[in-house]
Design a protein around this nucleic acid. Structure first.
Lengths: 296, 296
DNA sequence: CCAAAAGTGTTCCTCCTACACCCATGC
DNA sequence: GCATGGGTGTAGGAGGAACACTTTTGG
């Protein structure tokens, strides 16, 4: 064992770190928050909107287009640490919900050179909004996000079939807008299935970031029901209607209040606080019950 | 626009690809299959076992220990292509189910140099087993895998609480064995939560591969109910008991046959084939119904 | 005959859906 | 008063869990 150990030391010394061609590795951050839109009626509830942070590119390639904030992973930090660093640089925030999503490694995804990008999703409490941008990011803006499918096509082939789905992504922030269409193809042949995703068209959206955003929205939808992600998008104290609106904004559909209240009952704790002056019956404030899921 | 375009061309020419220190990027493959164990009784059903392919390291570091098959991502291939290449080299197989899992980027995870590893899970039909190993891999073996928690601890702190869970991983193949304990810590403070995973001890298991295996098993368990992954581990024709055994092996618990049959009823298609000579009532063979989930 | 697996029927229980309805407020 | 959201009750249906039971084989 000690013999092995010294041999290992020698080996490590002589190991040539340059024997492989190495790609650059970056992180791209999907920062989401939920904001209130103004209401026209003193009684009516303000609608909520799902937002994502985009940055106007001041360099080639994709000069002037909108892109996800990101940065390269340096030698002295883990990928997680790089994600935290980029997050803090863009928003000044630490200690927000952070989750690795997917690593994008197609050869041509960055026209400069080979860049492999690891995407992270961060969820920001809406009470921290509006956020101060970090230095050098005066072109960072929060965009309203939504995606919806525009076309689905099923084709029967000799040995199986094929399903194609087109998803339209819309991003808007005042006068600025960006759109993209992402096509997902699932091919089933001889019982084996394969999924391919392509960007059909993108306006004002850089790199393959349209794919990343569609992927993140899908993940949000999948996880909102059985995890605590919705609470990371709300302040500490919230009403059940607030919570319901977050669910609705993520799921892209309306929910019935009665059923919703029962479904989330054990995920929240009632508090003594009450929200008044809303033009209707006051509502109790709740907070997250961190012990509802005692696993992990 | 055309002005921008020519400026972009110039920029790309002058872009220095070496301005950032770049890590090596590799893929690590989690190859799973399900095999039949011999039965002692002519009537009794043979049990099934979940297996993972490991390779005995013939180089430093971790010489002589077991590791996941893997390889570096080269400049002329995407990460997916690298995964497919490594898979084919190790097993000779193409067109199997492949899924990217997670990207591991801690600084010290490879003692040689900075290596970021993207892990992929591949599921192999059990009728392709036993597999011929590719060239140079006579030390590749299928190990029986199982994991189970041994300890859970919840501690209340000033501003929140902490949950710790220890998971024991056991790998065995004839006389060869490897084990590891992975500790997962979830810290909740001020409503913000963070999860950290560490390897507490590992015997005969190289790098951080214990974490990868635990992660993959978790993913398998999570997805088996609502996706088609179980079918990728079975031959084209199978009995409902076969399918149930695959579920049981992945979930690590026994299921009631009556409920199971009803739950999977719309995921399978009945065929005319029947399996006989089993020492008991013959059973219908089924195959996967690829249209049960018409989404995506 | 019998052990074992294949396969079905039934009951109970839980959870989700939907809709109806009452409550409390600001203007 | 009244529009609006807050909040509860209830009936119906879908689906899972548990268990009893019948069917069909090889030896």
């Amino acid at each position: 064992m000690s013999e092995n150990h010294s041999a290992e030391q020698m080996f490590l010394k002589e190991y040539d770190v340059n024997q492989y061609v190495r790609p650059s590795v970056s992180v791209d951050m999907l920062l989401f928050t939920v904001t209130e839109e103004e209401s026209e009626n003193y009684r009516k509830r303000s609608d909520k909107s799902l937002k994502i942070l985009l940055i106007k590119r001041k360099e080639h390639p994709f000069l002037g287009q909108w892109a996800l904030p990101g940065g390269f992973v340096s030698a002295h930090e883990s990928i997680d640490e790089a994600a935290i660093r980029v997050l803090e640089k863009e928003t000044g925030l630490r200690d927000v919900y952070l989750e690795q999503l997917y690593t994008w490694g197609d050869i041509g995804r960055d026209p400069r050179t080979r860049v492999i990008s690891c995407s992270y999703m961060a969820l920001i409490n809406s009470d921290l909004y509006p956020l101060q941008s970090g230095e050098g990011t005066e072109d960072a803006k929060w965009f309203h996000v939504s995606d919806h499918w525009t076309q689905k096509k099923t084709t029967v082939t000799e040995n199986g079939f094929m399903i194609e789905k087109w998803v339209e992504l819309r991003l808007g922030s005042g006068a600025d807008a960006a759109t993209a269409t992402v096509k997902t193809t699932k091919i089933v042949e001889h019982g084996h299935s394969k999924v391919v995703q392509e960007i059909e068209e993108a306006h004002n959206l850089a790199f393959d970031h349209a794919k990343m955003i569609v992927y993140a929205l899908e993940r949000l939808r999948n996880k909102v029901d059985y995890t605590d992600i919705a609470f990371h998008l709300l302040p500490e104290y919230f009403t059940l209607s607030d919570l319901q609106q977050v669910f609705e904004v993520i799921l892209g559909k309306e929910l019935l209040a009665a059923a919703f209240r029962r479904k989330v009952a054990d995920k929240v704790l009632e508090t003594n606080h009450i929200r008044r002056n809303a033009g209707h019956r006051p509502s109790k404030l709740y907070r997250y019950n961190p012990t509802w899921d005692d696993e992990l």
